[in-house]
């Protein structure tokens, strides 16, 4: 392949991986926007989403096969179940601590993350699970490039989910309530908005999107394991910061930017794929030094 084709191929890969980052980053940014909490367990929710999808696909494949129909059914069910898990986590672990010092709730989030991934580790004996589908590798070739139909469908599905979220946040009453709570929680309470329910809803939507990303990542990579949420959690956070934390379009943009930067960065001489993760974290640190508000974020004076 010529250099140009390698770069194009990497752009396509970057776009796809970036869209997973975007979906996970949305959950970070929504929760952060509404209660100013870095939900460390969010990467693990993505991982749980992948495993729930895996289990459901196993059930569905006997009834309706592991083609697109089965995958979509598994993904939707996983989104609902994991969304509910997100609500339960919020209710049990975070809500009692909303008024406590910030350090307590951060440590609780770390504890939640440990519980989720160790639980899945014990359940799966720490093994990789093959995400078997009937999709195959058919696709279209453009010159030396080859794009599978799976890749195309995954990108389209991500775009649809994001459009849906955009509609939900901007056009529905619930979305309006979320945006209002992000600005002033006490005023919302006075206006008769059910703040606790809206926070729970935010966790539901964020976790459901992460679960969708988890199932799609399973389909794309073909295997899943309990530790997959750790690195993507860090990267999705980086993506959220790139876009400007708290900003929903920022998270979508940030994920794509990070995916593309990573795909191209690993093509640089001296930066092999084993340094891919380091590359993302170095971007994060540089960004925090030079532009901590990100591309679309509002500058905010620190309030403890």
């Amino acid at each position: 392949m010529s250099l140009q084709e390698i770069i194009l191929q990497q752009l396509i890969n970057g776009l796809l991986i970036g869209s997973f980052y975007s979906l996970v980053a949305l959950g970070y940014t929504m929760v952060y926007g509404i209660i100013k909490l870095l939900n460390f367990a969010h990467g693990d929710i993505y991982m749980v989403g992948a495993f729930v999808g895996f289990a459901l696909l196993g059930v569905f494949s006997t009834a309706i096969g592991a083609g697109w129909l089965g995958i979509v059914a598994a993904m939707l069910c996983s989104m609902v179940l994991v969304g509910l898990l997100g609500v339960v986590i919020q209710r049990v672990a975070y809500r009692p601590l909303l008024k406590a010092p910030r350090l307590s709730i951060l440590i609780t989030a770390v504890g939640m993350s440990l519980v989720l991934y160790n639980f899945v580790m014990v359940l799966t004996n720490g093994e990789y699970k093959a995400f078997n589908t009937d999709l195959g590798f058919s696709g279209v070739s453009l010159g030396a490039l080859y794009i599978t139909y799976t890749q195309i469908v995954l990108v389209v599905a991500t775009a649809l989910l994001m459009l849906g979220l955009h509609w939900f946040i901007n056009k529905t009453m619930y979305g309006k309530a979320m945006r209002a709570i992000a600005i002033d929680q006490d005023a919302c309470r006075l206006m008769g908005i059910n703040v606790n329910k809206t926070i729970a809803l935010t966790f539901f939507v964020g976790s459901a999107l992460a679960a969708a990303a988890g199932v799609m990542a399973g389909v794309y990579y073909g295997s899943i394991h309990f530790f997959m949420g750790f690195v993507i959690g860090l990267k999705a956070f980086t993506a959220a910061v790139i876009g400007g934390i708290g900003s929903i379009p920022g998270a979508m943009l940030g994920g794509l930017v990070l995916g593309l930067l990573e795909a191209l960065g690993t093509q640089l001489p001296m930066v092999g794929s084993e340094w891919k993760d380091v590359f993302a974290f170095v971007i994060l640190i540089l960004l925090l030094v030079f532009k901590p508000t990100g591309i679309l974020g509002k500058s905010e004076i620190e309030r403890m």
Partner: peptide, 30 residues
């Protein structure tokens, strides 16, 4: 690590140190 991050909200430190831990481990491995 601390210089740039400590100027920001304290939660940033948590995630940057998490990333730093991974950087050191990956660097040591490679």
């Amino acid at each position: 690590i601390g210089g740039p991050t400590l100027r920001l909200r304290s939660d940033y430190l948590a995630i940057v140190t998490l990333g730093f831990g991974e950087i050191i481990r990956i660097a040591a491995r490679n």
